[in-house]
Amino acid sequence: MKKPVIDAQNVDLTFQTNDGPVHALKDVNLQINKGDFVSFIGPSGCGKTTFLRCIAGLETPTGGSLTVNGLTPEEARKSRSYGYVFQAAGLYPWRTIAGNIKLPLEIMDFPKAEMDKRVEKVLDLVDLKGFGKKYPWQLSGGMQQRASIARALAFDAEILLMDEPFGALDEIVRDKLNEELLKLWAATNKTIGFVTHSIPEAVYLSTKIVVMSPRPGRITDVIESPLPKERPLDIRDTPEFIEIAHRVRDGLRAGHEA
């Protein structure tokens, strides 16, 4: 068996706040392999976003060990292993769409010609060809979120971390983007960490579903999805799909009662 890309052993994180310490993560153990699509699902406050931020080195665990390709998250971040997509698109309003996608490339000192080539390529990947010269505020919410995914893909990071990227979008747009994301994943074979609180979204997208529960934030169940890699939208009506969704729901409920 190969070494996992992301390896979390007994990860603990306690925030010190004005109202006393908050136990955000407790005893989190998880291995993510190359090419996995892992969803983190759970109610608000269960630590799913916090865990994603720990992987990205934006938060530092107070206990346990967390490695990414054998490096600390901090080192991995400095070596530019992550493409991070936030809940809101977070595009810079003073840059065009193309300018926003170039942002990480400029920071990472890509040569000029290479930048333009990559911008064209990722705009095509997220189906935004021809919108490079527009400003973010001239696009719809769904298009903005696609642009932010393009930005995360531009520098070809090995790991794509997505924090409820489609949470603010309506269901129709969300379905379409889910489908596109799967295509993208198949085309690039990236390792993806995906936070959501929609059960169908988690089941539809993932090879591995991590169910979490709050107070303290911890993992209650890890489900390996038996669904095939090819997933048309109507797979959501199959008995297999519904069965996994049931298991996720049970996991969530168990975590809630515990």
């Binding site: 934006l58 810079y92 990472m108």
Partner: peptide, 28 residues
């Protein structure tokens, strides 16, 4: 915007890069 700042961190941007590409324009 804290999200914009986190984004720069995920790129491993330096202080000068963050100042030049994010905080400068945002302060205008």
């Amino acid at each position: 915007d804290p999200m914009h700042r986190d984004l720069m961190r995920t790129y491993g941007a330096t202080h000068i890069q963050t100042l030049h590409k994010l905080r400068g324009p945002a302060a205008l």
